[in-house]
Design a protein around this nucleic acid. Structure first.
Lengths: 176, 176
DNA sequence: TAATGTAATGTTATAATGTAACATTATTTG
DNA sequence: CAAATAATGTTACATTATAACATTACATTA
């Protein structure tokens, strides 16, 4: 996938912490890494160079990255790496809530709100790959209520939406 | 508890067609296949022996099946098959809306309501693999509204919930 | 600080999932 | 029937992910 350059997210919200969801994450890289560092310290987890590099690469990418794309980037930057290395780092980063995995296309992206537990909705543009993370209580409440009604104990819910982002609609939608 | 439905003893929900969402699909196999057959005829699509076998196997499984599990079942039943064969059949069945694919665990399951276009919510038990397909307008309306607000043109939404089904909660949850 | 235990990473090999490309067979249509 | 199209067979390979074990880094404490 992926050719045209993505637009940036334009979602307004007010979360704790120093990361803004309005500004693209790669423009706040230092801040994002510092926050991860602080959270690890607080949680007595080790934010090693490897983990930091992986998070940094994901953070700098305009689109979510696959594990092997990540591996290639690591090699380019001089660090030899094999699949288990990157998968382990990804596991850690997911556990800490710093990245999410998109099951619909096997990619990973930085989480805009690593401070708190949350569930998110992802809007994945099938044209350019740009992915927005939305936080919406309403949807998860509805899912939770529906699950409970079915006697099901919800542990994790994943909502992934495929379609066209605003930018790509303009580019491809005019002819129709 | 299921509300008593008006008329036709075998149909216990309000959907068009002859398939009940209350009764397990494998207990209505013949009917399910007949319906798929009828829909294909109507749509001028070919419901070949291969496609029928794949749908039948999926339908008979209590849990969603992976493509390679399906392949094994086909081999057991005497038909030699290679991956592209089963993937092509799955593609067709998905296009016709007879099966869904679960991205969260790369499996396929029969659709309880192949008659109409719909979006579904899947409750996947991480213990036993049993998966329920729910239809809930509310959730999809909420997702759609949220996407629209973000200027995103929704084409497909996938909602997959992981947790414990009622049965497995009893088995594993007693100590708590 | 040396000894020890644990966590993290390196390394090799392989499993699991999915597709490209082209050959062959079956079905439909002129 | 011939020709076109659709479906399936077949080979090879791409992509995604993990198992198993070796090594290194870090932390603890005697």
């Amino acid at each position: 996938m992926v050719k045209p350059q993505p637009k940036t997210a334009t979602i307004e919200c007010r979360h704790a912490g120093s990361i803004s969801c309005v500004k693209p994450l790669h423009q706040q890289l230092t801040r994002f890494l510092a926050q991860a560092d602080a959270l690890c310290l607080q949680r007595k987890q080790r934010f090693t160079a490897l983990r930091k590099q992986v998070l940094s690469l994901i953070c700098q990418s305009p689109q979510p990255l696959g594990a092997y794309a990540l591996l290639d980037l690591m090699k380019e930057s001089g660090r030899s790496a094999a699949p288990p290395t990157v998968y382990r780092a990804l596991d850690f980063l997911q556990q800490q809530g710093f990245v999410h995995r998109l099951a619909s296309n096997n990619t990973y992206l930085a989480c805009a709100h690593p401070q708190q537990q949350h569930e998110a909705v992802f809007l994945v543009c099938k044209q350019c790959g740009f992915t927005q993370e939305l936080h919406t209580d309403g949807i998860y409440k509805a899912v939770g209520a529906r699950a409970e009604k079915a006697g099901f104990k919800l542990e994790h819910a994943s909502v992934e939406v495929s379609g066209l982002c605003a930018g790509c609609q303009q580019k491809t939608g005019v002819s129709q």
